[in-house]
């Protein structure tokens, strides 16, 4: 389900003295099965851009075409479109509407007016995909969930609509390391096994670096870089200039490079770093 964004502009509170331009002439095409990371400093327009992708926001200027359907078209079936392009919000408290986990996950399928068995199947399947045990959690009170479990329930609620594209808007914020790992594992599995197209918004460069094939960098409503993950991190200076923090590994390799260590100017894994440093140092020691 490809998404084509052409010359998209958007202003917040258009027509009032508080008008603020959020997106300027954005062009982006997202292909089927891609894992694209959307990064940028706070208030750079990431969320606004992503919400155009499932017609939560209708373009003021420009076009957004999802699977051949223009979201600004008068008779476009936006309800169907939103089921196909799922959106998981940053804060799970805004997207859990029912008292129990099972009822909440069924919310989407119930809106689709599916049969009872079908709904039940979908809930069971969605819970399994996010690693919430059906027998334990189906009747569990939403408020009795931990932060990580709440987020998994929120993802399951979107999965139950059987989307082909999934937008994840900073879903690891506020989780502890273990909770974060669990969510990221779920996301990776959905991409690899279910072949879902993933649009992944995050403040954490480490997460994006680990997961995304391609990254679009937003700054003040402009897309300033749109390239493969490796190439994007090759432009470390540009990223830092707009106020992004590099992955921790890159900060260390960057400093070491200044002192003459032979390390590449892009993102490498921790093991690679260890390998290269030890080769560099031990080569020297042998040479002496």
């Amino acid at each position: 389900m490809p998404i084509e964004i052409k010359n998209l502009c958007y202003s917040y509170k258009q027509g009032t003295p508080f008008e603020k331009k959020v997106l300027h002439n954005v062009n982006l095409s997202i292909n089927d099965g891609e894992f694209i990371g959307l990064i940028g400093p706070t208030q750079s327009g990431k969320t606004t851009l992503a919400q155009h992708c499932n017609a939560l926001i209708i373009p003021q200027k420009g076009r957004v075409v999802v699977n051949g359907c223009d979201t600004a078209e008068k008779n476009a079936n936006l309800t169907d479109l939103r089921q196909n392009v799922g959106y998981v919000f940053q804060n799970p408290d805004y997207q859990l509407f029912a008292p129990t986990v099972g009822e909440d996950i069924a919310f989407g399928p119930v809106n689709q007016k599916l049969g009872r068995d079908e709904i039940n199947n979908r809930v069971r399947e969605a819970m399994e995909q996010v690693g919430l045990d059906y027998n334990i959690f189906y009747k569990r009170d939403i408020f009795a969930l931990s932060g990580g479990q709440k987020r998994r329930a929120a993802i399951a609620g979107v999965l139950a609509c059987r989307p082909r594209v999934m937008i994840l808007d900073d879903v690891t914020a506020g989780l502890d390391p273990r909770g974060r790992e669990e969510i990221l594992a779920v996301v990776r599995k959905l991409h690899e096994e279910k072949m879902l197209t993933i649009i992944f918004i995050s403040n954490s460069m480490d997460e994006v670096a680990m997961l995304a094939d391609r990254i679009a960098v937003l700054d003040k409503g402009h897309i300033i870089i749109d390239d493969t993950t490796k190439s994007v991190f090759g432009e470390a200076e540009k990223l830092q200039q707009i106020g992004l923090e590099l992955p921790e590994v890159m900060e260390i390799t960057g400093k070491l490079r200044e002192y003459g260590f032979k390390l590449p100017q892009t993102l490498i894994t921790l093991d690679e770093v260890v390998e290269l440093i030890s080769a560099d140092l031990q080569g020297k020691q042998v040479g002496e």
Binding site: L256, F261, L270, D271, V273, V274, I277, S278, L281, Q282
Partner: peptide
């Protein structure tokens, strides 16, 4: 990283926990 390097046989103090210290020691 420090612990990985120690495993590779480099002699680094156990007290390395932040980037600056690591860079200095290396």
């Amino acid at each position: 990283i420090a612990s990985g390097l120690r495993a590779k046989g480099l002699i680094l103090p156990e007290s390395i926990i932040d980037a600056e210290e690591l860079v200095n020691q290396l």
